[in-house]
Simulated assay, not measured.
Amino acid sequence: MKTKTLVDPFAEDVTKGLTENPKSLPSKYFYDDRGSRIFMEIMAMPEYYPTGCEFEILLQQSPAIVNKLPFTVPFNIIEFGSGDGMKTKHLLKAFTEQGAPFTYIPIDISQEAIDALEANINQALPGIDMQPQTGDYFEALTGIDSEKPALFLFLGGNIGNYKDADAIALLERFHAQMKTGDMLLMGMDLQKNPRIIQKAYDDPHGVTRAFNMNLLTRINRELDADINLDQFDFYCDYNPQSGEVNSYLVSLKKQHVHSALLNTTFYFEKDELVWTELSKKYTLAGISALAQSAGFAVAHNFMDCRHYFTDSLWIK
């Protein structure tokens, strides 16, 4: 049988990731519709502090964030990876209460997440000027009025999922899309007691495990593979010196799995790791250095009461 020509990025990335050494799967593929639902469960767990910390910041400090913005004319609020909008609505409410003339443009790869966001935002702030976009961040930007000043949002600590070089590359792409004076509000998890971080990413409820295992379910479904999920497990490790949480799938036996769609067989050794995600934790000095490396300056760090997390406001 002739091997299928790979045109789908998911198929290409799975093929590359499961044939290289060490093996890996890109964390961006966590967020199909089911993965997005599981991540909402993660955010609701008491052990997963980032969500509560950022809720606190946006609930209590949104008026202060508004006051830090220099915009005097109608502007866009463009959110990358908006999810269901439950946190962002507090910020939007503060803007609305101050009569700020803005258009909210949430962008997410999951249509299900965008649907939930529209329902949540419309219920909380009926009549808001909102233009939701489903798809890739930068493709979605092409249809947006670029003449308006803009506040870009990248909340939830998502920047921590990128290796240093990749984080700088992404921030440089943000920078290239922004005009002088535009601002970026970015959620960033801070270094703290290692036990607190470990529990957040290796929860006793098995939700984070399910989030990772869903990658295998997605491969079975979309690439017509025969992965036996019982033959894999989940593991994560936090290194407090580097500030990195690394997550893995673990092959529990020597095995092979086959994708009919790809006409490809993947081989695993017993206890072999498949790296799935990085979750980086920052110091305030590290945040300033990262901002400068991408051409930004830190205007202010808004932190929760325990200083576990910051929404860091940067200016171009």
Rank of each mutant, 00 (worst) to 15 (best):
T5R: 14
D8R: 07
P9W: 11
P9K: 12
F10P: 02
E20I: 09
E20A: 13
N21G: 01
S27L: 02
Y29R: 10
Y29L: 06
Y31W: 05
D32K: 10
D33H: 03
D33L: 04
G35C: 01
G35W: 03
F39M: 09
E41V: 02
M43L: 04
P46D: 12
Q60N: 15
N67E: 15
L69F: 05
F75R: 11
F75W: 10
I77R: 06
E79A: 03
G81W: 09
S82Y: 09
G83R: 04
G85R: 05
G85P: 08
M86C: 09
T88V: 10
L91T: 07
L91V: 09
K93H: 12
G99A: 08
F102R: 13
F102K: 13
T103A: 03
I105V: 15
I107Q: 10
I109M: 04
S110Y: 01
Q111A: 15
D115R: 13
A116G: 05
A116L: 14
A116M: 10
L117V: 06
P126S: 06
P132E: 02
Q133P: 04
Q133A: 12
D136K: 08
L141F: 00
G143F: 03
D145H: 06
P149A: 02
L151K: 08
L151E: 07
L151F: 03
N161Y: 04
Y162W: 00
I168Q: 15
E172Y: 01
G181D: 05
D182C: 09
D182W: 09
D189R: 12
L190P: 09
P194W: 12
P194Y: 11
I196P: 03
Q198I: 02
Q198W: 04
Y201N: 05
D202F: 07
D202T: 04
H205F: 12
V207F: 01
R209T: 08
M213W: 05
L215T: 05
L216E: 10
R218Y: 06
R218H: 11
A225P: 11
D226F: 11
Y238K: 02
P240C: 07
S242A: 12
N246Q: 14
Y248K: 00
L252S: 07
K254S: 14
Q255W: 10
H256W: 06
H256F: 12
L262G: 01
T264G: 01
E269I: 00
D271H: 14
W275C: 07
T276E: 07
L278Y: 02
L278E: 00
Y282E: 06
T283D: 03
S288N: 15
S288P: 00
A289H: 12
A291Y: 07
A291D: 06
Q292P: 00
A297D: 03
V298K: 06
H300N: 12
F302M: 08
F302R: 01
M303P: 00
Y308T: 07
F309C: 09
D311A: 07
I315Y: 04
